[in-house]
Design a protein around this nucleic acid. Sequence first.
DNA 1: AATTTTTAGTGTAAAAATTACGCAAACAAT
DNA 2: ATTGTTTGCGTAATTTTTACACTAAAAATT
Lengths: 230, 230
Amino acid sequence: MCEQNFCYRYPHPAVTADCVIFGFDGVSIRVLLIQRGIEPFKGRWAFPGGFMKINETAEECARRELEEETGLKNTAVEQFHTFSDINRDPRERVITVAHYALVRLSEVKGGDDAASAHWFAMDEVPSLAFDHDLILRVAVNRLKERICFEPIGFELLPEVFTMTELQNLYEAILEVKFDRRNFYNKMLKLGILTEAEPRPANASRRTPTKYRFNDGKYAELKQKGFRLEF
Amino acid sequence: MCEQNFCYRYPHPAVTADCVIFGFDGVSIRVLLIQRGIEPFKGRWAFPGGFMKINETAEECARRELEEETGLKNTAVEQFHTFSDINRDPRERVITVAHYALVRLSEVKGGDDAASAHWFAMDEVPSLAFDHDLILRVAVNRLKERICFEPIGFELLPEVFTMTELQNLYEAILEVKFDRRNFYNKMLKLGILTEAEPRPANASRRTPTKYRFNDGKYAELKQKGFRLEF
DNA sequence: AATTTTTAGTGTAAAAATTACGCAAACAAT
DNA sequence: ATTGTTTGCGTAATTTTTACACTAAAAATT
């Protein structure tokens, strides 16, 4: 029998933090899941996450669990909703502060930790543990809203990318199609892209221009109150 | 000495729900605060809120506490952020799921419950208990974002209102000034306003047209994917 | 080797949305 | 009586958004 050393005058729920990690494979948005090794929901897929320690914030917890379970270090996570349905965990009353982050697929090394981690395309995601199906739906909605106002999409691309890759990303997230020329014009007019290398003189038409995201320009524009929109 | 009947193997934080309630007095945005009757922060002002019961969700808790402390019944609250800093409550580790709602000033009756409740104009809000100053800042930002995309503002006005009152509301929330004619045109073009009563024939110029918010039209437009913006 | 398909780059005209702006009548305050 | 504030109303100029076609190079197919 285990000791139950932490006693309170009133019942306390347990608190967890979960992480919805989005990636991009060039065509589809993917989400990073881990396969549960223990009950409940043993064998089912779920988001990385776990119980909050008494001396860490929800965000610190999310980042710690993420590293422990997938090897991802120093990931900027952002909380998006707290789920508190009464029976969402069969063990005891658990509320979870759900976070999301955007990560390049390449950042997840296939180490020990990440043994059971896998990137699922959005249309291949199986039925998840706990209420994680619901959490995913909410996260996707939040991602769509967010990408319209902040250039978070760049966190999903390699440092240097082509305009077509960027367009594919936006189309994958928003599930719409853009006219290529209008997308080019709009993106370039925003002024947050820099050509990665001067286009060589001998560049053929077929060789696309490479861009990188210009943090400095973005910070500058943001301060003046600027709006990214699609 | 009190009994400590609820024991766990690991430490559990306490969980509360707090409510940032916004109102509008015709000129300024106001926020509903209650004066704390007990320690900690006895005598200081704070948001209505309190400890979550083990068999209620965070939202249910927010609504229950709101009614208990201010008499406001059946208020549609929406969670906007969970605050989990380690020392935000001197008693024990407490995380709070913060909610906000928009309410007409008139809905708060001066009953027993609300004895210590008071509507503060935003520029008169005193230094608050706990981390409620921070919570308020976050709530105001969220309100500004939200008002741009959903017509939540109407929840703050009487059922029937003039265009000028509506403009004052938007200007108070967003802290900007609009051109009166452009605001009129934009609002009317959205199609979510109905004239409350046909303007009497003898109406003088000086008698403003009264409008009401048209829920049906709004639901219709929303379904087609429509965007309210300012 | 020839043919077909795919991709990248580029610009403009039309339509729609946004902005700036003035006036006359009614009422209120002085 | 005078002054200042409030309401209703509409248009012209500007800006933004949208729709849309061709060429050359490379890759894939035959």
